[in-house]
């Protein structure tokens, strides 16, 4: 609560964070250095990790097969550690479009995409995308033709999901690195396509 003369007071929950952390440090459960190291490590994890996987799968059919068979092993093959993550990669095809959600909490392939955007954790997305996926995708500007089936993946337990988007047309002569540059976070959640633009 704000008192006179106090600058940017801690919220109740920030106060709880500081207090919890200091108690855990005093008890030798964690150290400040460990906490900072993990927080910093997470900051460096962003969607470019997932994009690297997708671009490899687009350019190397054998890798794609391994990725679809065992997502975790295929990530480790590229030197990407995915701790505590059993990754299932689901492939978009001309017939099927995949989209990911966690209706019960906010499970997300964070080791490949970083921390999730707020909308992914919102009541609106979690409630609606399982029941009216086409309407929700339309709100992202993504129109899925009627003849394409939509497959929703609810991450309810120990698996995490990553969408392998369709490779855009007219990118046949692109390098793997250039391809990785067009693989967006949203395309790997399944709410948008990857675009060559």
């Amino acid at each position: 609560m704000s008192e006179l003369g106090k600058y940017a007071p801690l919220t109740y929950f920030q106060l709880m964070e500081v207090s919890l952390r200091e108690l855990l440090v005093e008890k030798g459960v964690v150290s400040d250095a460990e906490v900072d190291a993990v927080a910093t490590d997470m900051k460096t994890r962003g969607p470019e990790r997932g994009a690297k996987v997708v671009a490899r799968a687009w350019t190397d059919p054998a890798y794609k097969q391994r990725l679809l068979a065992d997502g975790t092993a295929a990530c480790e093959e590229l030197g990407l550690d995915v701790p505590a993550l059993r990754l299932v990669v689901v492939e978009n095809t001309p017939e099927v479009h995949n989209v990911i959600v966690c209706t019960l909490c906010s499970c997300y392939p964070r080791m490949l995409l970083g921390l999730p955007p707020d909308w992914y954790k919102s009541r609106e997305y979690r409630s609606r995308v399982v029941r009216e996926p086409r309407a929700v995708l339309a709100e992202f500007g993504t129109a899925i033709p009627d003849e394409v089936a939509i497959r929703v993946h609810d991450s309810t337990a120990d698996m995490r999901y990553l969408v392998l988007p369709l490779r855009p047309a007219d990118t046949e002569d692109w390098s793997e690195q250039r391809l990785a540059g067009i693989v967006t976070r949203d395309s790997m959640i399944g709410v948008a396509p990857a675009k060559a633009a």
Partner: peptide
């Protein structure tokens, strides 16, 4: 909450 009615998804982050 899966399947319950809710508003438009605001693309916030």
């Amino acid at each position: 909450m899966g399947g319950l009615p809710a508003g438009k998804v605001e693309r916030s982050e």
